[in-house]
Every structure is written in C-alpha cells, then in structure tokens.
C-alpha cells in the first residue's frame, strides 16, 4: 500500500504586505511627529476641560517645576529684544555674541550673574548643568526683571503670557509669579494644561450640547 506522502512545505510567509503596512505607519508617524521639547525642565501639567490650544507663537512662558524653581523661556524672535531690555534694567552689557548665545539657549534658569557663562556653553555641556532656577524672593526678584523686560519688549505686539506649573507646585510660588505679572499690569494669563473630557451631564456639557444643536461651535 502506498502511503500518502506528507509534503514538507517551506514555511515561507510572504511578508510584503506586512512590510507595506509597517512602512506606511512609519511614514505617518515620522510626518506626524512633533518631538517632545528637551527635558531640561520636567513638568507635569494639571488637566482641564479647556480645549483651546496653547499659543505657539509670540509667547513668554514662566515654568514652575515641582521643586518650586522658576524658569522662563520665550518665542525665538522675542529673545533678543527681551535680553536688551534686561540689560537696560540691570545695567549689564550684552555683546552681539552674548545675544547670539542667548538665542541658542532654550531655557533661562539661572541668576543673571551666571547667564552669560551658561549661554556660551555648547549644547552637550548645557545638558549636564542642572539649572537652579531664577531667584524670585523679595530681596532679589530677578523674575520680576525678566517679566518687566518681556512686557517692555512686547509693547504693541500680541504676546501671550503663559504659565506652566507642575501638579506639585505650591500655590505660594504660583502667587509670586502672578504678583510679578500684576506689578507690570498684566492681568491675563494662559495656564498650560492637558486636555480632559468634559464630564458628561455637567453644566458645561449641557451648554455644549445646546451649542452643537444650534449649530454653533462648542466652548
């Protein structure tokens, strides 16, 4: 009796289709990628139901981390004018090279006395330095200097004043930042948050539903 032969098949799966999908996804993610800003200052912002995007242009941001250290950063084109104002306020001299170095620095997180020295470092060296934060106590309120400079430099321009605080930031620190802004007659701020769903059934949710039904944009 001839036995039925079991054919040995080579287990060759055709991976072309899978490969296609993989690279399609890859292309999508490369194009959609917006890299996380460098983690020089790590901040976890609280959630809010606000669905307004944070301004991406002409901003001046005050960042407060979980250890209540304060840093500022600003929109690229605002950097040079703000530094000049700081120079005028504190009688410090900034050479064109200093301004150039400042433009290449992302965060300001040092007392003014160490600013030039830090700015001149290369990117790798900057990564190694732990920023101590800008002094903001009442005897040496350099945060106020920066904010005053920012307000002066942005006169006549639409600048958004952003505050980016960490969940664990103390209210007292936040209050000091607000005070520094208020001394410069700035009363409108944007608090950076993470988007969160509006709880179903809440007042805002009902309001949004009414707006959607009447064809308006929800808030």
């Amino acid at each position: 009796m001839p036995r039925a032969k079991i054919q040995k098949k080579a287990t060759h799966v055709d991976m072309t289709a899978m490969c296609d999908v993989a690279f399609l996804l890859l292309t999508f993610f490369i194009l959609a990628a917006q890299f996380k800003p460098s983690s020089a200052v790590e901040v976890i912002t609280p959630n809010s139901v606000s669905n307004k995007h944070a301004p991406e242009m002409n901003y001046f941001t005050v960042t407060i981390d979980k250890d209540n250290n304060v840093y500022v950063d600003m929109w690229q084109t605002l950097k040079a004018p703000i530094l000049k104002e700081v120079g005028e306020l504190t009688n410090m001299q900034f050479s064109p090279a200093d301004i150039k170095a400042f433009e290449n620095t992302e965060f300001v997180g040092l007392p003014l006395s160490q600013l030039k020295q830090y700015d001149a470092l290369s990117a790798e060296q900057k990564d190694k330095v732990k920023l101590p934060g800008i002094p903001y106590d009442s005897t040496n309120n350099q945060l106020l200097t920066w904010i005053t400079a920012a307000v002066k430099a942005s006169e006549g321009k639409q600048t958004s004043f952003l505050i980016r605080g960490d969940n664990a930031t103390k209210y007292t620190t936040f209050k000091k930042v607000l005070d520094a802004f208020q001394k410069n007659d700035i009363y409108k701020y944007n608090l950076m948050t993470n988007a969160e769903e509006v709880p179903e059934g809440s007042e805002l949710w009902k309001k949004n539903m009414r707006r959607i039904r009447s064809g308006e944009k929800p808030e």
Binding site: F35, A54, Q182, K188, Y189, T193
Partner: peptide, 19 residues
C-alpha cells in the same frame, strides 16, 4: 516614533485677574 510623538497638544486655560 510612537513613543517620541506627543499626540496631545497642550491646551491652555484663560485666567483673568482683576486689577
């Protein structure tokens, strides 16, 4: 790329303080 992409853009909440 999935890990390095921040999918959710930060939002902002307006705060107006009185003078």
């Amino acid at each position: 790329f999935i890990f390095s992409t921040t999918m959710s853009q930060p939002t902002s909440m307006n705060l107006n303080m009185p003078k």
